[in-house]
């Protein structure tokens, strides 16, 4: 997907078992709040977390964020039963591994949608390909359900035990990230992730490193990323939004291309020492379009904070 249908730059993962973090999450400004039942909730706390989940959904949307719930596929029935209520935008499946597993998740969601009065197909899926098998099966996993909107590597560095190389790059990650971006494009889904480097691990980094990881991530095709701390949200929003200077340059290229083609005698032309071809013009048009979508999303979130209801873009 060249330009994602929805702007989802920052996905803040918040453990449902920590009420103070759940209530603080909306003020962080994330495009998506991920209420987590899987990764950061101790086994013994899970029953209570599931109980409390339904009442967390609407409050989490108070600042205009979408709300996803992150589930453990081994506990999919219990986790989905706790999560699929009106207000839910989607489910994040950790350790997504096989097509059968995703079809089972899809079927349970369909059943719950119908019983609980959600419109059919409204709950989206974001799949974390965190295991080697999940990545290997990526195409089948990604196409197993029409709900699937996003793919990510989640915390693959931990799940697959991928450690930093002497260069600071995390072993195998360059390959896995670019593979995922290609796979997402091939299956019409949006690739999520940031290009983390040592000492970052498991979505965890300082705000400065998060910004750098987001900028690098965007450069290789990611459109947003998960994070685990409130102070990572702003760097993700910033890093995944085209900068003003990029947008200005892209506008320039689009205009130059438009006037060159309008004359009917388009030739290869150079703008700022760069050859302007139709594909470079397409890249620039994408930047402009995504920038506009980000502005619309940001205006919606500001309006939500101000209490002004405006329609979802």
């Amino acid at each position: 997907m060249t330009i994602p249908a929805k702007v989802r730059r920052s996905w803040l993962v918040t453990p449902v078992s920590q009420p103070e973090r759940v209530s603080a999450a909306p003020s962080a400004g994330a495009d998506v709040i991920v209420l987590d039942l899987a990764e950061f909730v101790a086994e013994s706390d899970k029953p209570a977390a599931r109980e409390s989940l339904r009442d967390c959904l609407f409050p989490a949307k108070s600042t205009g964020a979408e709300v996803f719930v992150q589930i453990d596929p081994e506990l999919m029935l219990a986790d989905l039963s706790a999560a699929v209520w009106p207000g839910l935008d989607g489910i994040v499946v950790t350790r997504a591994e096989t097509a059968e597993q995703i079809m089972a998740v899809d079927a349970i969601i369909s059943d719950l949608e119908s019983r609980r009065g959600l419109s059919p197909g409204s709950v989206a899926l974001a799949l974390n390909l965190e295991t080697a098998l999940g990545n290997h099966n990526g195409f089948e996993v990604s196409t197993a359900s029409s709900r699937t909107c996003c793919l990510s590597l989640g915390r693959a560095d931990l799940v697959m035990d991928l450690r930093p190389e002497p260069s600071g790059e995390i072993h195998l990650m360059q390959y896995l990230m670019q593979r995922l971006v290609t796979l997402a494009s091939a299956t019409g889904t949006v690739p999520l992730g940031a290009w983390w480097r040592f000492p970052d691990r498991g979505l965890h980094a300082t705000p400065e490193n998060t910004l750098e990881a987001a900028l690098r991530g965007r450069a290789i095709g990611f459109k947003g990323s998960f994070c685990v701390l409130d102070n990572q949200v702003r760097p993700l929003n910033e890093g995944f939004t085209p900068s003003e200077s990029e947008v200005a340059a892209a506008h320039g290229l689009c205009e130059a291309y438009a006037s060159a083609t309008a004359s009917g005698t388009f030739t290869v032309l150079c703008v700022d020492d760069r050859v302007l071809t139709p594909d470079i013009a397409r890249q620039a048009a994408n930047t402009v379009a995504f920038s506009e979508a980000c502005s619309t999303r940001d205006r919606f979130k500001i309006a939500a904070v101000d209490g002004v209801p405006i329609p979802v873009p």
Partner: peptide, 19 residues
Amino acid sequence: KGEVELAARAAGREPHAAP
């Protein structure tokens, strides 16, 4: 190298790899 290591890991075998 990525393909081979991913295949080894997906099959649950020790990857023979190096930075």
